[in-house]
Nucleic acid binder design. Structure first.
Length: 568
RNA sequence: CGGGGCGUGGCGCAGCCUGGUUAGCGCGCUUGACUGGGGGUCAAGAGGUCGGAGGUUCGAAUCCUCUCGCCCCGACCA
């Protein structure tokens, strides 16, 4: 490919709207153009990268036994009503105007409903199972706030796979196979990833892993044990109970006047104590009944953990009226002392607290000197909170917190969708039972952006050869010199003939300009052809990832490159 | 959805507060000359409904009202 005849609109300046490196570099390298908030055009070299990522994903899916199909982006709302997800997705679901359609139509944010509809139509025997179907498709989600370039958009490419299994053992096999395929995909894309336990959330599955890439541009947090023995989404991270501190002399329980001081910060400031000396009392309504959660003042209740502990379907903060009725006080003055006839769950850390401060269940009053066992009893104690700095893994290794982005997610769905949509089959005993499902997603655009986030320098992108828009970049200097151009063209043709993607910069520009562009678009192998080198019978070979320049005879270039590619 | 900011040639910005000739500057682009190993120099050019609508005024990029779009922080996020 000749640069002069191709379309790579590079730019020296960084657009003001771009904040994260991947966004800035994609714009500058001429890969990407924003068309609307959260909707991007992929320009030729950006598109080439996407295609390479898609091909890797496709190869690994096929290798893992998944079968490709293609489902519509336009879907009938009725299908979403069957599972109730029209409500659950809320505003994220993009509805088309009703006019020209008989039924309401939405743009698919994901395809569980559609794929389940297909399978229930054709699968009715255990003999047809298991089967895993996948597609690589454009998804639409009306995100409230698209951001960070291609990392969070309203329209994006996703590989989504769905396994349909007759038994749990079979589901586990499919899940494991997908998990392994994901690892291979990220490895082939040159992406340093971490597989973490994830919260399976409202989707209702019982196991789930996320594939994370550590980067400052991320919007999720992952927690890792320093010794590498544990990694989890912060939503999910399980930590060791805090150790008991040396016991202090118990002070007496005292009621103090704290007028208008309802928050942890206000009360701790007034009473000159640390938030860690306070017991935070949060009142929820779980499936309609009030429940009280206790955590240390500097900790936050993890509602997912609480929900799981309670085995509740709905969980929300109680209304001020409920709180008033339960505690007899305004919001901000609740505490466990004297609180009866309600289920109280304490975080483990609360058990280690001594002479604590907490609400007195009386408006404008708190207690000091509160001790569990004496002033109130902890009947239920569990891990209820989010991990914070200083927490440790169950084996005692300290936690490290890192920002990250999610590039993939695998779920064991169970029968949530097959139950709701009546996707059943007859098992060997002639009994009709719901198909057990798993679902497996990969964000294709995110892989591209994540690779750039984790592989760039001040001059530009550093693509791994596997997904680079071109594999080799020939820079012809002195383009008006016939020997230079004929040599460059010859190398170009030989490399193309050997099956490589080659870009030849044949523009009549100054050398520095072309080198800067070469570094910016980040093709892994660079061949420089110039008058000087040719005078001594050589061209130069350089890796994007290194400053070393190797002199090589023009007719040795193909074999040298093949050696390099064979090693990588 | 709360808070903040920004819309002026392809990109980055100034001008606005305090209204007044042909709306500037840098990058990029075109043409020519010189130049040629890390984003060159000089010269001459092209390119703008100042996001849109309405209003105030003799006169609006500038003041007022409405509106659309975009970015950032937060909340939310199978």
């Amino acid at each position: 490919m000749l640069w002069s005849r191709y379309f790579i609109p590079t730019s020296k300046e960084t657009p003001a709207d771009a904040v994260v490196p991947s966004h800035q570099l994609m714009l500058r390298a001429g890969m990407l153009r924003q068309i609307a908030a959260g909707a991007y055009a992929y320009l030729p070299i950006g598109f080439r990268v996407l295609q390479k990522v898609k091909n890797i994903v496709r190869e690994e899916m096929n290798r893992a036994g998944a079968i490709e199909l293609h489902m519509p982006a336009m879907q009938p709302l009725d299908l979403w009503k069957e599972t109730g997800r029209d409500e659950a997705m809320g505003e994220t679901l993009i509805h088309l105007p009703d006019k020209s359609f008989r039924r309401g139509t939405v743009l698919g944010p994901t395809h569980e409903e559609v794929v389940t509809e297909i399978v229930r139509a054709y699968v009715n025997s255990y003999k047809q199972l298991p089967v895993t179907l996948y597609q690589i498709q454009t998804k639409f989600r009306d995100e409230e706030r698209p951001k960070s370039g291609v990392l969070r958009t309203r329209e994006f490419l996703m590989k989504d796979a769905y396994s349909f299994n007759p038994t749990l053992e079979s589901l586990n096999e499919s899940y494991e196979r997908m998990y392994q395929a994901y690892c291979r995909i990220y490895e082939r894309c040159g992406l340093p990833y971490v597989a973490v336990e994830a919260d399976s959330g409202a989707i209702g599955g019982d196991a789930s892993h996320e594939f994370m890439v550590v980067t400052n541009a991320g919007e999720d947090w992952l927690v890792r044990a320093k010794d590498g023995s544990y990694a989890a989404n912060v939503e999910r991270a399980v930590m060791a109970p805090l150790e008991k501190t040396a016991s202090q002399e118990q002070s007496t329980l005292a009621e103090v006047h704290t007028p208008g001081k309802a928050t942890i910060d206000e009360v701790s400031a007034l009473l000159k104590c640390s938030p860690a000396d306070m017991i935070k009392t949060i009142i929820y309504e779980a499936d309609g009944s009030p429940v009280v959660a206790l955590v240390r003042g500097d900790h936050e209740v993890n509602e997912a953990k609480l929900r799981k502990h309670l085995d509740a379907v709905s969980l929300e903060l109680a209304s001020p009226e409920t709180i008033q009725k339960l505690t007899g006080a305004n919001v901000g003055f609740a505490g466990p002392v004297g609180l009866n006839d309600v289920r109280i769950i304490a975080d483990q850390a609360v058990s280690t607290m001594q002479n604590a401060v907490t609400g007195a269940n009386k408006t404008d009053y708190h207690y000091t000197g509160v001790n569990s066992g004496r002033d109130f009893n902890i009947t239920e104690s569990t891990d209820l909170r989010y991990a914070v700095e200083g927490d440790r893994a169950l084996n005692g290794s300290p936690f490290v917190f890192e920002k990250c982005i999610e590039v993939g997610h695998v779920f064991k769905l169970g029968t949530k969708y097959s139950d709701a949509m009546k996707a059943t089959f007859l098992n060997e005993n002639g009994k009709s039972i719901p198909i057990i499902m798993g679902c497996y997603g990969i964000g294709v655009n995110r892989i591209m952006a994540a690779v750039i986030e984790s592989s760039h320098d001040e001059n530009g992108i550093r693509w791994p050869a596997s997904i680079a828009p071109f594999t080799v970049h020939i820079v012809a200097l002195d383009t008006r010199d016939d020997t230079v151009m004929s040599t460059a063209m010859k190398i170009h043709n030989e490399l193309e003939a050997s099956g490589l993607d080659v870009l030849l910069d044949d523009r009549d520009s100054r050398p520095g300009f072309k080198f800067k562009d070469a570094d910016l678009i980040g093709i892994p192998y660079r061949i420089t052809v110039g008058k000087r080198g040719l005078a001594e019978g050589i061209v130069e070979f350089k890796l994007r990832s290194s400053d070393d320049v190797q002199k090589v005879a023009p007719d040795q270039v193909v074999s040298l490159l093949q050696d390099h590619l064979a090693q990588s």
